[in-house]
Simulated assay, not measured.
Amino acid sequence: MFGSILPGLAGPARPELRGDTDRVTTRTRQAAAVAHPAPSLAAADLDRLHAAVQAALTEFLDRQRTTLAGMAAGLAPVVDEVAALAAGGKRLRPSFAYWGWRGARDTGPGSGEDDAAVLRAVSALEFVHASALVHDDVMDGAVTRRGRPATHIGFAARHAADALHGDGDLFGTGAAILVGDLALVWSDELLRCSGISEGALSRARAVWDTMRTEVTAGQYLDLLRAAGGLPGPEGALTVARYKSAGYTVQRPLQLGVAIAGAGPRVVEATTAIGLPLGEAFQLRDDVLGVFGDPTVTGKSADDDLREGKQTLLIAWAEEAADAAGRRLLDELLGNAAAREEDFQALRGLIEDTGARDRVEQRIAQSTARARTAIADAPLSHDAKAALDALAVAATSRTA
């Protein structure tokens, strides 16, 4: 349904998840659809935003490619990797930021900001995201990302292909860390050079700094939870909030309204929208990480289980499992030697304990809360329509 409304952002309203369709999830989504009718957003608006973001990234990276080429020819793969990372994705973060600005631009001093400059400014969020993806893949030991080798895997392969000296895996890890760092540096530069006014840039910086601190802190909390800290469902939700949920919806929205110079009432509305919607987005990511179709997600459906990711799915499965189920989790979750049938057994456990149903219900409930907050927000009508459509697309996606 939303594929025709939001081309390139979301597929059918029901994700193509591995396993049998569960009746509880279907009932939950049907109830949500009754409470909140399907939104609409002109495809032209989305296409224009996507094209503007890609143009801003391409122009910026072309300049950086020239700069790095002047340093040494061997730096070409570095900028090529950032470009490859920035070329993928759904552009959700710039979309939320842009529509936050559009919704509040007539309420504050940012009404005179140039539309093209704002689009360049919010495009910088894609470099923050690229940085987080690279570093996350290193820490998780991921193999693929968006249908291509993860950055550290790709550079390790380049080390072998070029017959370089030393340990190829260490080379790949080191290169990936630096690629991620460079993407973060470039995010600052693109924001600063976007062309928005000094006042707007000053207002944006406060949100920008908070967002980047939260992302980094969230990555550490993820490591801590994997090592046994922050146990239980609340620990999983804390990691989800700071590692990805905040910088996916809440902070981008706040970045947009900060550029607009909106007042406290609008900022409060972005929190009411962003926190539940960001959580729902991350929980959908967790479900796809275990039950998604690899041909759609671009990564193996076994990766999250092999890496031992301590998501809410796992926390609720562990709570509801019997002794045999908990032994299965202990033996197979995070076991690099586990086989396909072992991961199928883990999926079955997650289904049988009701953990997947509970997560789907929470996604539906959080999405409904966010959509209600959007409807009540002191934002322009066109922005609310766009944000509502984005909310549905972000939480019913297949990749």
Rank of each mutant, 00 (worst) to 15 (best):
V34C: 02
W208H: 05
P109C: 12
T295S: 13
K90A: 08
A206P: 12
R284V: 10
F291Q: 15
H165Q: 14
T372M: 10
A43V: 15
L237K: 06
R347C: 03
V207K: 03
R146Q: 11
D20M: 09
G100N: 03
D45R: 05
F155T: 04
L49R: 01
I363W: 05
H152R: 00
D114E: 08
A38W: 01
A383G: 12
G246H: 02
T144G: 12
G8K: 07
I350W: 01
V257E: 00
A176F: 09
I350R: 05
G3V: 14
E307Y: 10
Q30A: 05
E351K: 07
A35S: 13
A31I: 00
A355M: 02
G289S: 14
A280Y: 10
T144I: 01
L221D: 14
L332T: 15
D302N: 15
R212F: 10
R14L: 13
Q254N: 09
V215Q: 05
D167M: 05
M139E: 08
K299E: 13
G11R: 12
R356M: 05
L133A: 10
V185E: 12
A69L: 08
P12D: 08
A317S: 15
D188S: 14
E214V: 10
A377T: 05
G246S: 06
G108Q: 00
A32F: 06
A87N: 02
E318K: 07
A385T: 15
A73G: 04
D382K: 14
